[in-house]
C-alpha cells in the first residue's frame, strides 16, 4: 500500500477544515505500521481514505489489487442485531461462504479470544472488550491483505488490552502475509506492536517523523523498560512534541 500527496478537507459552513495535507507514506508487505499523533490530527480520516470510504481531493492511494482492505473502527464494529457468532462470521457471510464452513472457521478464533460459549450472546450482553474482540475476529476471518485499525482497543482496560495484543501479534506472526496499519495515541502500544512508527502532525495531518522499531520479537511489557526501547520512545515523543508545538503555535496562549 502506498499513498502520496494525500489531501482531504471538509466544508463546515463557510469554513474549510483541512484534515490531511500532502501526506505521503508507504507500507512494506507484511509490515506492522503504527501511526501516532495528537488527537484531531486526522488519523481517523486517513484510515477512512485508505479503506476507500472517502475519496481524497488530491493525491493517490495504491492498494494491492483485488485484495481486501478491512477497517476495524474504534467502536460500533459489531452489529447490535447479530449475536457473537453471526457478528464474527459477518464478513465471511458477505463474501458468500456457507454457514457450516463459516462456523468451522470461526470456532478456533472464538476459543483463542476467550469467546467460546458466548456464541449466542448479543453485543448488549458483552463488555466493551469482548465486543472489540468480536470485531477483530470478524476482520481476521475475512483474511484481509491490509488490516486498518482505528484504536480498536481504546475502550479496554490495560490487562485485557495486553492480552488481546498478545493474541493479535501471535496470529499476525503465524500468518505473516498481512499488512497492519494501526492508529493509536499510545506510544507504548505502538512500540510493543509495530515494526515502524509514523508520527503525524496536528491538523492538517502530515508525517513529521518516522521511527524504525527494530526490537526483537516476541516483545513483552518488560521490554518497554530496556534502554533501546526508551531511546526509541524518546525519539517518538520528540517528534510528538514537535507536533504539539505546532499546536501551540496554532492556538496562541490564552486561546
Amino acid at each position: 500500500m502506498r499513498c502520496e500527496g494525500l489531501g482531504v478537507s471538509f466544508a463546515s459552513g463557510a469554513q474549510r477544515t483541512h484534515a490531511l495535507h500532502e501526506l505521503t507514506f508507504a507500507t512494506h508487505p507484511g509490515e506492522f505500521l503504527s501511526i501516532v499523533g495528537p488527537s484531531g490530527c486526522g488519523k481517523t480520516t486517513l484510515l477512512r481514505v485508505l479503506a476507500g470510504f472517502i475519496q481524497p481531493e488530491c493525491g493517490i492511494v495504491e492498494r494491492p489489487e483485488g485484495r481486501r482492505t478491512i477497517l476495524i473502527r474504534q467502536e460500533g464494529s459489531v452489529f447490535p442485531w447479530l449475536n457473537v457468532l453471526e457478528n464474527a462470521t459477518f464478513g465471511l457471510e458477505m463474501m458468500g461462504v456457507g454457514r457450516g464452513e463459516r462456523e468451522r472457521r470461526a470456532r478456533p478464533y472464538l476459543e483463542r479470544f476467550g469467546l467460546a460459549g458466548r456464541e449466542k450472546d448479543y453485543p448488549a450482553q458483552l463488555s466493551v472488550g469482548m465486543k472489540q474482540r468480536v470485531a477483530v475476529i470478524q476482520a481476521l476471518l475475512a483474511d484481509p491483505e491490509l488490516l486498518l485499525m482505528d484504536e480498536p482497543l481504546a475502550g479496554l482496560d490495560s490487562q485485557t488490552r495486553w492480552a488481546v495484543h498478545g493474541e493479535l501479534l501471535e496470529l499476525w506472526e503465524q500468518q505473516g502475509h498481512r499488512t497492519i496499519v494501526l492508529v493509536t495515541h499510545d506510544v507504548d502500544e505502538a512500540l510493543l506492536l509495530s515494526d515502524r512508527v509514523l508520527v503525524l502532525s496536528r491538523q492538517p495531518g502530515r508525517v513529521v517523523g518516522e521511527v524504525e522499531v527494530s526490537l526483537p520479537r516476541p516483545r513483552g511489557m518488560s521490554d518497554l523498560l530496556t534502554p533501546e526501547t526508551l531511546a526509541l520512545k524518546r525519539r517518538i515523543l520528540t517528534h510528538l512534541g514537535f507536533a504539539m508545538k505546532e499546536l501551540a503555535l496554532a492556538f496562541p496562549s490564552g486561546a
Partner: peptide
C-alpha cells in the same frame, strides 16, 4: 461501509 468492505 463495513458490509461493503466485505463485498456485500
Amino acid at each position: 461501509e463495513m458490509a461493503r468492505n466485505y463485498g456485500a
